[in-house]
Amino acid sequence: MSDTILIILAVLGGIAGVVLIGGLIWAVSVSNRFSRKSVKIEEALSGIEAALTKRYDTLSKMVEVARSYCQHELDTMNSVVRLRKGMDVKALADSAGRISEVENSVQVLAEAYPELRSNTVFDELQKGIRETEEHLQAARRLYNANVSSYNQMLSVFPSSLIGNFRGLTEKEFFTAEGFRTGDVEISL
């Protein structure tokens, strides 16, 4: 084999090596980015859970305060919200929608009872509920922003190659307000 051919093979081998190593570094980097984004999504989901817990606690206190003014109406409504641990995003969002209905019911009751509205504790709790709503919205939007970023990366070439290779699937958006994830119930 002549020297020229050897040189050409060496150059080609070198290029192939560089491309291979470069490709490997890129693949590891993309794979790590998927992992980091996935962790961020989990963090954001725990943010939603924290906000929901806070909201639940405030709402529970509101119901307790309301009970001393309109026990009868609360008994008549007899609405129960049950949630269980380990719910997925969709189930969590559905339950969150139900708890919003509870919240609305309490607000409607407050409209019918001026003395309840003028109760300073109830008034403070209403402000607290508004604040927890802001937190919940922020947590939900942060979660969805992270999911959007993750899903875009998963569907766009060439990062989709790595995503498919790892068997990753698109994450679900949080589409409604949520509620506490523990085994809790609120009886009206």
Partner: peptide, 22 residues
């Protein structure tokens, strides 16, 4: 990055606590 594309085109956002930012 926020969900508002026009905002993303206009501004860079960075935060120590992303929850606070949102």
């Amino acid at each position: 990055e926020t969900e508002n594309e026009a905002f993303n085109r206009m501004f860079d956002v960075r935060a120590e606590n992303p929850h606070t930012a949102f």
